[in-house]
Amino acid sequence: MYALSAIVGGAATALSGALVQFVVTPSVPDTMWSYPWAGDTFVLVCLVYAVFHALVLVGVLGFARSDVPGTSRAARSGGALAVAGTAALLVAELASIPFRSETLDAGGPAVVGALFGLGTLLTGVGFLMTGVTTLKAGVWQGWRRYVPLATGVWTTLLVGLAATTSLAVGVGVYGLCLLLLGVAMRSPAVTTTARIAA
């Protein structure tokens, strides 16, 4: 369940990033919080994105609860940060809806934007920590052992991409990282506890 949730959520996130970057034609100026969507469409998009984050959250929770990152304090703390950060992103999507008609410099969007930034940073730091402990734990071998660290590095870089025109591409790559995490969790080559198989 955890692995499948990460795969579906990651794939959906990757696809949405690609669509926004290469397909969607903006309906509002880039000074609007709802950019590139018009108000009603923005509400629907936020709800859909919240579902994506919920799926990813389940996957991240499964990874954090497994033996893959190890059982050290750093592993537990990193897992908790990644879960908290992903949850913050989910909340930020829903919190965006009331401000769909406001500009980026308004108070509400500024607060929600900060929440997005905090969630991304917490997720990145959490995956950096569990990425290092995963390498030390040795439960995963081959390419799988590098996925959590790569996810952490990219998610941390995503904080810097937030104010650029490359944000959608960055989100797409973030989705691919989560997709790979799910594939790694699902692999029969992974040694896990009963909790991850639940």
Rank of each mutant, 00 (worst) to 15 (best):
M1C: 07
A3I: 01
L4C: 08
L4K: 10
G9L: 03
A12I: 11
T13E: 04
V20D: 10
P26A: 14
S27H: 14
P29D: 08
P29M: 09
W33T: 01
A38T: 11
G39Q: 13
D40V: 09
T41L: 14
V43W: 05
V43M: 13
C46I: 01
A50S: 11
F52V: 06
L57V: 04
L57N: 00
V60F: 06
L61E: 13
A64M: 05
A64Y: 09
P69L: 09
G70V: 07
T71K: 15
T71H: 15
A75W: 12
G79H: 06
A80C: 05
A82S: 13
V83Q: 04
A84W: 01
V91F: 11
A95H: 09
R100S: 01
T103F: 08
D105M: 10
D105T: 15
G107A: 14
G107R: 02
G107V: 09
L115P: 03
L115F: 05
L118R: 12
T120A: 15
T123R: 12
F127S: 01
M129E: 04
V132C: 02
K136F: 03
K136A: 08
K136W: 11
G142S: 12
W143N: 10
R145A: 09
R145Q: 11
Y146I: 08
A150K: 04
A150E: 05
A150H: 13
V153E: 05
T156D: 03
V159Y: 03
V169G: 04
V171P: 00
G172I: 02
V173W: 00
G175M: 04
L178W: 01
L179D: 01
L180Q: 02
L180R: 08
L181D: 00
L181T: 02
V183G: 05
A184I: 07
A184V: 03
M185H: 08
T192F: 02
A194D: 14
A194G: 15
